[in-house]
Design a protein around this nucleic acid. Structure first.
Lengths: 325, 325
DNA sequence: CTGTTAGCGCGTTCAA
DNA sequence: TTGAACGCGCTAACAG
């Protein structure tokens, strides 16, 4: 039925230990016995059982990936980056969605532990004590990916979101904007958005208006922004995400003004959405793919005990100027 | 160091078999010994080792998911559906991207086999003989998800894409369109797109124009569609995806015409993109989340030997009318 | 209702 | 350079 390493050994007239050696290159094997083993493997169509390997070696070559929601464009791009590098280093990923619920996130660390993952890549809003405790108990190497950890207790890959906020505000000021509004989900929903906001605020000396976009979805934000525009004189808008940015552009147009002549609009992220609006949207681009790729690379270093320059790597964001400003 | 089932057994003064029983509910255990076991588990912080379980039971509670590219909105939504149902039935998913390359897809079936996944959910353009062979060799239950298998050899979840194409064409005809163009990636790139096209064609008696949108991306499609519009008189456009649909809308606007007054535009899929254009886009909606959810549910039935009404389930598509037509 | 005993398929000493 | 033997942590008969 299933071909095991014993069958290969018998076929090649060697012991299973030798088969294991040629499989893992863990010791020198004489050339012609090695060839006999290889032939036997090919002949029998042998495939090593990764589960048995995992049990014996205590390493599964599997990485747990915990994200809020893969169906979000930003997250999907990050996951793609993780998976590409994982493949490159011969790891597989177990993917789970947490919907940003702390209890579920903590539980997931436990089930990942049961699965004996070699490491964990973790993406969430804000790190709570409960997370840290779970990591410590599980004793699994963790890399935080695009998630804020103010105390830098865990290896992480992120951008400087306050600085990104400042850059956005300064960019609009240099473009001549005086009355700037920040369209953002309700405070507390997204720590990233909050930090960007506080960065903008500091750079505008407290003269930043805020539009509460509730859950951050296009449909709910659109009417809210329109209402805001009818009450307030604004010549610049920064949105916390591309989706909100598009809502802002449409809202401006709906109240009879022009982008960018009357109101300049920009957003954070630079998903594919940003170029699919009219006018095309200026953004503070986030390196989404690299969030994933670099996180996974860092994790491989931790797993292989390779030297690491820094346990918290800060990726660069940059303003991409388009037609909306 | 690591707490094993033996430790729990000793602590509770029972045999490991009994611990296993309360863990798996695989036999009746007297209430108070059960409680002793539970207490011991809690006290020691015991977590069963899923790898050892997998080796002993030959079931890993892990599903392999092979998709072309998670970072595509359509795919990401499908994956979310898969993962939700997988969680519900206590499975994890190993996610891999194939970039739609047949060789890689076939190889992945092999590595999934090594990983001892209990089942496979498979999403690709078209099923080749190589795929079928790989499935048979691996002996793993497979469900095809939103992928065409003309001969229906493998359990699958899909929509009727030819019919969806016909519905799109008929809808535009009823709206009064006479000169209809189909914006689609180069034939052969996407079997879905091709089938939709042939459905439209049959319903228009061969009077369907085609715009070759190459790789199907917004940026490359936009100039191609504009060029086409300058050469041809068109009053209706169907696009193979939302992304191409937006390109079509913008192309129409760029050549100085109005949507929907001069040219009506609609697309397939209904990702979040469809409502984020002006005018909002009419679509033939695809049940993306359900593709994943239903596939996974079908797979659980196969794994649990539950009765299955049909091994090829056809989900319903439907036209969602918006402003672009 | 509970305990004993075999494996599951492989990595890894330790000898030879 | 190779083989024998043990153990990874657990499930699943089989007894009792």
């Amino acid at each position: 039925m299933t071909v095991t390493i014993y069958d290969v050994a018998r076929e090649a007239k060697v012991s299973m230990a030798t088969v294991s050696r040629v499989l893992n290159g863990t010791a020198v094997v004489k050339e012609d016995t090695k060839q006999r083993v290889l032939d036997a493997i090919a002949k029998l169509g042998y495939r090593p059982n990764a589960v048995a390997r995992g049990l014996a070696s205590k390493r599964t070559r599997t990485i747990g990936v915990i994200v809020p929601d893969v169906s979000a464009a930003f997250v999907a791009e990050v996951v793609r980056g993780i998976e590409d590098i994982a493949t490159m280093y011969d790891y597989h990923i177990i993917l789970t969605n947490s919907d940003a619920q702390v209890q579920r996130e903590v539980d997931l660390v436990g089930t990942m532990w049961e699965k004996q993952v070699d490491g964990l890549i973790y993406m969430t809003n804000r790190l709570e004590k409960a997370h840290i405790d779970a990591f410590e108990q599980a004793q699994i190497p963790v890399v935080l990916c695009s998630t804020e950890d103010p105390e830098r207790r865990i290896p992480s890959v992120n951008v400087d979101n306050r600085r990104a906020g400042r850059d956005a505000a300064m960019y609009l000021r240099e473009k001549g904007c005086h009355a700037i509004a920040y369209v953002t989900p309700t405070p507390g929903m997204s720590v990233l958005a909050d930090r960007r906001g506080s960065g903008m605020e500091s750079s505008l000396e407290g003269r930043l208006m805020r539009v509460d976009a509730k859950n951050g979805r296009y449909e709910t934000a659109l009417p809210l922004i329109k209402a805001f525009l009818q009450e307030h004189a604004v010549d610049g808008i920064v949105a916390a995400t591309d989706e909100l940015g598009i809502a802002a552009i449409h809202a401006v147009q709906d109240v009879g003004k022009r982008v960018p002549e009357d109101v300049k609009v920009m957003a954070f992220d630079n998903t594919r959405l940003a170029v699919m609006v009219r006018p095309e949207m200026t953004v503070v681009a986030q390196p989404m793919y690299d969030f994933g790729a670099v996180s996974m690379r860092l994790l491989t270093k931790l797993l292989l005990d390779e030297p690491v320059e820094s346990y918290t790597v800060t990726l660069q964001h940059n303003v991409v100027e388009r037609e909306s400003t």
